[in-house]
Computed example of a mutant assay.
Amino acid sequence: MFEPCRLLFLFSIFVISLTNAKPEHNMTSHSAFGHYPMRRPVEYSSPHPYPFMVSVRLWPNDENVCTGTIIGPSSILTAASCIFGWFEKELRLKVGSNNGDQATIYEIGSYAVHPDFDHKTHVNDIALIHPKQPIKMIPNKVSPVFLAATEPSVGSHSYLLTWSSKRADPHSKDELKRITTTIKDRENCDPDMYDPFTVDSRQLCTLNVPEEGACNSDFGGPLMTDGKQVGIVSYFLTVGYDMECGNGLPIVHTSVVKYRQWIASNLK
């Protein structure tokens, strides 16, 4: 007479064990830089969940050369390396689209580049682009990003917004993707065997899943934490002659927090 009760008890234990089981995607894999989450499916944004994103285009070829974020109607935050070597008349700003469709094109009026930017070491890799005409804000389609007031802690999860994250397909530049990443400590970000650059206190370092990460057209793009921009993509580490993006090595970002005063003084 107690057998049905016993079976019910065992079944309850089985259900609880299934409920508490950890999903496979929480497993970790090891690299020379520590642990990072195993590969996850790329999240495609649709239709406009990131209304602050800007594609900086070579004109008239309409080629995506780098990225920026809207921080005001007349100010686009980007990396100095994004616009280094380009004249204002050679570039355009494409806003209001995460896949290139129905975007609005703006001409560039002027740049504000950090006076101490070093294009060899990427220190002070920050700039503002000022369009000729103020960008028209459209609810849920075109609006400014929030800038973080504090830096994320080491080990915290952030994400990149990238037009061309795949090593296998680095030329797919018009479909915005969201890539999960992890904040890495600066001291262990750039061993000499990987890259000659030194990451200092004005930069952030992230560790990314192999095959996913920023490519050249993503320089100047945002590193996001809790819905706020904490960094600007500056460069990715390389090994020897392997200059491919998505190589599984860390990406270095200019810390937005360390330049809030410079940004404020150069807004239009």
Rank of each mutant, 00 (worst) to 15 (best):
K141N: 04
Y194R: 05
W262E: 13
Y36R: 12
Q229M: 07
K120Q: 12
R167G: 04
P23K: 06
Y111T: 12
T198K: 13
N99R: 12
T121P: 04
A103S: 14
N247T: 12
I251S: 15
M224G: 04
L93Q: 02
N99Y: 04
P139H: 05
R178N: 02
I108K: 03
S55R: 12
T78C: 13
R6H: 06
V199K: 06
S217T: 15
V256Q: 04
W59Q: 02
E151Y: 02
Y36A: 12
V252N: 05
N208T: 15
N247P: 06
V209I: 09
I263F: 07
S217R: 01
E187V: 11
N216A: 09
S158D: 14
S153C: 01
M1S: 08
V154F: 08
D174F: 12
P51L: 05
E3K: 10
V65A: 02
K89G: 00
E151D: 14
S46Q: 14
A149H: 11
G96D: 02
H35M: 06
T69D: 08
T150G: 00
E212T: 05
P60G: 04
C189M: 07
L147R: 01
R167D: 08
V209D: 15
E90D: 14
A214R: 01
Q261N: 12
G231M: 13
M53S: 03
N99W: 06
C189F: 03
C205L: 10
T254P: 12
E107C: 05
P131F: 06
W86A: 09
N140G: 01
R260S: 14
S75N: 07
F11W: 11
P4Y: 02
I76C: 01
I71M: 05
V15N: 06
K141M: 04
L91W: 04
S97C: 06
D242T: 07
N208K: 14
A264K: 12
G34H: 09
W86H: 15
C5W: 05
P49D: 11
I13F: 11
E24D: 10
I16H: 02
D192F: 03
H35L: 14
H30W: 05
I108Q: 04
T121W: 03
M224K: 03
F52V: 00
F52R: 01
Y111C: 14
V154P: 01
L58V: 05
R57F: 02
V42L: 15
K268S: 15
N61F: 01
V15K: 11
S164V: 06
P47E: 12
L18A: 10
I13R: 07
T28R: 10
Y50A: 13
D218C: 11
M243T: 14
C189Y: 06
Y106T: 00
G227M: 11
R6S: 08
K228M: 12
H130L: 08
A21G: 03
S143P: 00
I13C: 10
C82K: 02
